[in-house]
């Protein structure tokens, strides 16, 4: 068990190190996020009350669009020099490989989100600090759901033609329940209202989504990687 954890964190550390060294995905993702934030301001009046009402949706759209750029690189990174073969033929179990990569992606996505959030607040005049604990929880849960789904599909599409197109096509419909819940929860939080009553159902949905897809991913990853 400790060996499993050590291998998992070794993979995560390796992915983070090589990503932070090249910054390929992070740079692309951050600049893309900024462009989307800018584009939204043309779509509607950024100061109106209406913006406030859909702020959660906007924010998570930015996260989802920018996030897929990071997730796409996750397994594609291993294609160079056939590194994926070396990892699969090593004694590292598939789930450790998967979870390691998912953790690396999780950290990267959360980092990007933490950069986007204040920018979003400034651009659209939203005081996002009203419910910091709840907001952090929703971001942690929602991002994990996105990460798990995205990482599995990154492995699934790694050898395919048109990989860059395939991933978003397949991944967004599956992510929708997770994104929907996050959006529903984030909107009141950005208006500094706490989560209570009926809204807790969305939190449960997020937790359920995370658990079920993590379990599915861990059981299916060996089938995906070894043909």
């Amino acid at each position: 068990m400790t060996r499993f954890l050590r291998q998992m964190f070794t993979i995560a550390a390796k992915d983070l190190r090589s990503e932070l060294r090249t910054k390929e995905a992070v740079n692309a993702s951050l600049s893309f996020a900024l462009v989307i934030l800018l584009l939204f301001s043309f779509a509607f009046d950024p100061t109106s009350d209406m913006t406030r009402e859909i702020s959660g949706g906007l924010l998570w759209l930015v996260f989802a669009f920018a996030g897929v750029l990071v997730l796409n690189r996750s397994f594609a990174r291993e294609l160079n020099n056939d590194c994926l073969d070396a990892l699969i033929s090593s004694p590292v179990p598939g789930p450790a490989l998967f979870l390691g990569k998912a953790i690396a992606n999780y950290v990267l996505l959360l980092g990007i989100e933490c950069v986007c959030l204040p920018i979003f607040g400034i651009f659209y005049n939203i005081h996002w600090t009203g419910q910091p604990a709840w907001l952090a929880l929703v971001m942690l849960l929602g991002t994990w759901g996105m990460t798990v789904v995205g990482t599995v599909f990154s492995a699934l599409t790694v050898n395919m033609r048109l990989r860059e197109l395939m991933l978003p096509m397949l991944v967004y419909p599956i992510m929708i329940p997770c994104l929907m819940a996050s959006m529903q929860l984030t909107t009141p939080l950005l208006a500094s209202e706490p989560i209570s009553g009926d809204m807790l159902a969305w939190v449960r949905l997020l937790v359920g989504f995370d658990i079920i897809f993590t379990a599915l991913a861990v059981t299916l990853i060996d089938t995906v990687l070894v043909g």
């Binding site: 789904v149 599956i174 997770c178």
Partner: peptide
């Protein structure tokens, strides 16, 4: 063979989302 394997995984993941989609209807 690879197509069969990957699409089997895809159909399992797809069906796993269906209940989540329907849960969200209620709310």
């Amino acid at each position: 063979t690879e197509r069969a394997r990957l699409s089997a995984v895809m159909s399992i993941l797809s069906f796993a989302v269906v209940p989540f989609v329907f849960f969200s209807i209620k709310w």
